Computed example of a mutant assay.
Amino acid sequence: MAAGVAAVALAAAVSLAFGSRTVTPAEIADGLSAWLHGEVASQIGAIAVQQRIPRTVLALAAGAALALSGALMQAVTRNPIADPGILGVNMGAALFVVCGIAFLGISSPFQYLGLALAGATLAALFVYVVGSIGAGGSTPIKLALAGAATSAALSSLVSAVLLPRVAAMNEFRFWQVGGVGGADWSTMAVVAPLLAGAALVAFLCAPGLNALALGDDVAVGLGVRVGRTRAFAATAGVVLCAAVTAVAGPIAFVGLMVPHVVRLLSGPDQRWLLPLSALGGAVLLAVADTIGRVIGTPGEVEAGIVTAFVGAPVLVVIARRTRMRAL
């Protein structure tokens, strides 16, 4: 935990220091001091730091939320490849946001958030129902297949809605990639209570999730209310994912990769896995956003692209060294 907190602090410092313009530690201190006092910095480097503060905060919060959401979904479904992208939650939120842009002309953070929550919830429920049909109930393989099929279908619907509507496509295409470049305090203020509440619920569910890993029958014998624990944990995971998707777009791979890496370091105990996954996700997305700004100078490469590019080979290495079995 101490190393994780230190890594988050270092990632935040790196995010503030590097970009199209590299700044010095003194300029970082000047920029932070001016921001804390509600003033506008006088030096160019300090001004750059002030402009990077919102996106750094959003990158840390979004990365933590996505990794925590992925860890929850893997624990609830006992599926090692479960994450918001594979289970269709991201695309469910994206479809509702697209429909809101195309047909309702939405523009406020509250509207984005409401539609993203509705879409993510309905997509998660649909995947669970479809994955539960047939003998054996909701097995990990059936849930993964149902999620992949649902995600592909929803992606096709998103394209069908956007293609005839140029204005909606121009507004959506940058959001679809996933990134934190559009961070602003008013939008983050809208989603912050949801993220904090869902994270608290997730941490409170950790002991029950440990019991669920032993099987439903054993969990019931240990006094755990299986249905309630699974419902609360799944709801927290969906809310975390939907809130981030509403403000930063559907960023992939964070929720899938980070819990696997953390599990190799800390073991399967959810009381450690959940907070450490949150710290790891914050580090990953903040660093990915910084890399995108550095290699894309004078523009930027969106963080969602960088996480996929970095995460794919890491997950391949993990898969080669670890038996990918049901949790």
Score class of each variant (00 low, 15 high):
63 G>H: 06
45 G>F: 08
289 D>I: 03
81 I>Q: 07
48 A>Q: 12
240 L>W: 00
145 L>F: 05
269 D>Q: 11
147 G>F: 07
92 G>Y: 11
180 V>D: 00
143 L>P: 04
273 L>S: 09
224 V>H: 05
186 S>H: 12
191 V>E: 03
243 A>L: 09
93 A>F: 12
278 A>M: 09
305 I>S: 10
57 V>C: 08
159 S>Q: 13
96 F>S: 14
95 L>M: 14
135 A>N: 14
82 A>E: 09
231 A>K: 07
241 C>S: 15
260 H>R: 00
55 R>Y: 04
279 L>E: 00
168 A>V: 12
323 R>Y: 04
311 G>I: 11
113 L>I: 06
291 I>A: 13
131 G>E: 02
10 L>S: 10
279 L>C: 07
187 T>C: 04
109 P>C: 13
268 P>N: 11
227 G>Y: 06
135 A>I: 15
138 S>H: 05
48 A>T: 13
52 R>Y: 04
157 L>F: 15
9 A>Y: 08
103 F>N: 02
96 F>N: 02
240 L>D: 06
185 W>V: 02
11 A>F: 03
89 V>Y: 05
292 G>D: 05
217 D>R: 12
14 V>N: 11
146 A>H: 02
299 G>E: 04
166 V>S: 14
10 L>V: 15
221 G>Q: 10
6 A>W: 05
49 V>E: 01
216 D>K: 09
302 E>L: 11
167 A>F: 11
12 A>I: 07
117 L>I: 14
119 G>V: 05
317 V>P: 03
